[in-house]
Amino acid sequence: MGLDFTIVPSYFTLLLIGSGWTIAITAAAAVLSFVAGILLAVIALYGPALLRYPFRLFAWLFMGTPLLLQLFLIYFGLIQIGIDLPAFVAGVIGLGLHFAVYNSDIIQAGIVAVDRGQYEGARTLGLSRVQTIARIVVPQAVRSVIPPIGNNMIALLKDSALVSVIGVTELTLTAQLAISKTFHPFEFYLAAAACYYLINLVLEAGLRHIERRIQLAR
């Protein structure tokens, strides 16, 4: 069968919907990975041992095993213990927690690098330890690690393709659906690649915008 790109436009809507879901799952997982990443970092550095050790085990599990397996476990495995999550939610949780662990590592390094004088400056004004960590140390740490976190978010976008295997009709899965009808894999995988590339461009522009905005505030 020869190449025929003219069939791609008739599946434009389908690919658009797929792109929409890819953006939605990436955005939701990114927010989760960011918030959970901060929480994990704070617990790892300041939490009581009672919390630190279970969380370290959790981190080790998410870093040491394949993301695909984690998605299967959350989507198919949890049903057995009575937790039946919609595919989208399972995908967000899997992607979000997986990248939260990586973000946490980066944020921890950022927290450690915050100058000791910042902590003293805040405590001297009368802020408590918790207030100081929440309002002074963590915000500065997060600002200082925006570039590597941004790289993680780009990786997250690409890895979001994995949730196609649990049935989320995101970009990769919609491309596969189009292929199953037309038998033109080359054209549709290429079209999907182009979509990923465009989303990536927007994401990178967004990250650059954030970096510019916080440039003075560091």
């Binding site: 004088g117 003293e120 400056g121 405590r123 004004l125 009368g126 802020l127 500065q140 916080i214 560091r218």
Partner: peptide, 20 residues
């Protein structure tokens, strides 16, 4: 924390909060 509110301190290296 109560006591420190009543004792102002200024440091050699300012310790201003750069994110604010």
């Amino acid at each position: 924390n109560q006591m420190r509110q009543q004792i102002g301190m200024v440091f050699q290296h300012f310790n201003l909060f750069p994110h604010l």
